[in-house]
Amino acid sequence: MKNFYGILFILLSIQTLFGQVCQPNLLYQDSTAGVYPRPIIPGGSGKGIDKSACINKPYEFVFTVVIPDTLRIPGVPLLLTLTHAKIETTGAISNLPLGIDYFCNPPSCEFPKKSIGCLILKGTPTNANMPGTYKPIIKLTIGTLLGNITIDYPGVQFPGEYFLELLDENCVIATQDINIVNDNFFPNPTDGWINSREENIFDLKLTDLHGKTIKMQSQAFNNKFILPTEINNGFYLLHWKSVNRSYVQKILLNR
């Protein structure tokens, strides 16, 4: 009998573990109310969605949801006492590429007050999508003692934007205006320092081959770019702009 209950406990534990589609980032547990990472505010803060998706390749990105017991919403003169926050289990996140859906922990997508949960963007973008930048918006219902309030996040009350970059099947081109080059930055392979043959380049971004942003830099000072010391050897993609054109080059790091 003891063995039976032991096996039952293990099975229930496994079911619970796999039933949790995502885990919240506990670094945000003492943060103010919101969805983290925060949306990007031009000229301000917010990390946004820092992982790109690729057509016909599986994709996941986790948001952490922090719900306190009180909340002050811009435009509402009262400090609101919360009961919960909720998004519908389907259709609550707009502007996603076809093939990407969302799921929550808890599965009901209802987050009680004084709790931390998560929602995950998950799926495989299909060929029906055009590569480019998508701007997801979460329709969120906030439960208060005075009734429910429905808002867009980000939106008027919580400004900023989320940008989900969808690349092609090679995880390279996000728009038809990007030019793939092989020899602008040198030496390649590199031990960490690379130089640009072209001057006046800007908006540099280093990503891995899955599209995850590793480093961003507004300009190439003295036509140089330094790869972070903490990343491993291997291939990376360096994106940049010059005049009215965008470029990308594959860089091999070999320290």
Rank of each mutant, 00 (worst) to 15 (best):
T16W: 13
V181Y: 11
C109M: 07
K205T: 10
F202H: 14
D203K: 12
S115Y: 06
L252E: 11
T81E: 10
I55S: 07
I7F: 12
F4V: 11
I73E: 01
I137L: 12
I201R: 05
A128W: 03
I151P: 04
E169R: 07
T150L: 01
S94G: 05
G123W: 05
D30I: 00
Y247W: 06
E161Q: 15
Y102L: 10
F221H: 14
D203P: 00
F111N: 06
I40K: 13
G75Q: 08
F9V: 13
G99F: 11
S94A: 12
F111W: 12
I87E: 01
I55F: 12
N182A: 09
N233I: 00
T124K: 14
I251M: 07
F225G: 07
K205D: 00
V21L: 09
K250I: 09
T144H: 05
F235W: 04
F111K: 07
K205S: 12
R72F: 02
N244C: 01
P136Y: 14
I251A: 10
N222Q: 15
L140P: 07
K205Q: 12
S94N: 13
T229A: 12
V62S: 02
Y102V: 10
G192K: 08
F103Y: 14
S246T: 04
E165K: 15
Q20W: 06
P37T: 05
D183S: 13
E198T: 13
Q217L: 14
T190A: 06
G234K: 07
G117H: 08
G6W: 15
N184C: 09
F163A: 13
P228I: 08
I173H: 10
N25E: 11
V65Q: 00
V76S: 08
T83M: 06
R255Q: 12
P187K: 02
Y236M: 06
E230I: 06
L238D: 04
Q20A: 13
K47A: 15
L167I: 00
L167S: 07
I173R: 14
K212L: 05
A92I: 04
T83L: 09
K241Y: 00
G211N: 04
F111E: 02
L82D: 00
D50G: 10
G234R: 08
V76Y: 13
T124C: 03
L166R: 06
C104Q: 03
W240M: 05
I49Y: 07
P68K: 10
G160P: 01
T16V: 11
G147E: 04
F63H: 08
Q157H: 10
N232G: 02
Y59E: 01
G192M: 05
